Simulated scan of single mutants.
Amino acid sequence: MLVVDGRDVAPVEVATTRRARSRGLLGRDGLDGALWLPGVRSVHTVAMRFAIDVAWVDRSGVVLRTATVAPTRATRWVARAAGVLEAEDGAFGRWRLAPGAVVDILADGDAHATGELGR
């Protein structure tokens, strides 16, 4: 579950392998929820079928920067990011996810964690 400022907002997939991080959302027609890419500091949308919202998140779960990225684009590298959160274009607005928000990723049944992302 993706948690934004203490609110459960959407299901989240975690790309835990290098291959999963490299593939990201390629080949999909959409996404129900979000995709967390730990250890990633920039993304691209080459060969993507839809625009995405992207958030760069630090180790504490604080959103450093957000952007909407159209297909066939690439983002700049964000040095302090511990990972990138991706969702369909418009999702961040619905979730009120913006720079300064605090996010966490919880496994099913976990109590809300504080501190490092995804603990």
Rank of each mutant, 00 (worst) to 15 (best):
M1Q: 12
L2R: 13
V3S: 06
V4Y: 01
D5F: 10
G6N: 01
V9T: 06
V12G: 01
T16C: 03
R19C: 00
R19M: 09
A20F: 02
G27N: 11
G27K: 13
R28I: 09
D29L: 00
D32V: 14
D32P: 11
G33V: 05
G33N: 04
A34T: 05
W36C: 04
W36Q: 06
G39Y: 01
V40F: 01
H44V: 08
T45K: 13
T45P: 08
V46R: 14
R49G: 08
A51S: 15
D53V: 05
V54M: 13
A55V: 05
R59I: 01
S60K: 10
S60T: 13
G61D: 05
V63Y: 04
L64W: 13
T66C: 12
T68R: 15
V69K: 06
A70D: 12
R73T: 05
R73A: 15
T75E: 11
T75R: 12
R76V: 05
V78A: 09
V78Y: 06
R80L: 06
A81R: 02
A81D: 08
A81P: 03
V84G: 04
W95D: 06
R96Y: 00
R96C: 00
R96H: 10
L97A: 08
L97V: 03
L97M: 14
A98N: 04
P99F: 14
P99W: 10
V103E: 01
D104F: 04
I105N: 03
D108Q: 10
D108P: 15
D110P: 00
A113E: 12
T114W: 14
G115E: 06
E116I: 10
G118I: 07
G118Y: 09
G118V: 07
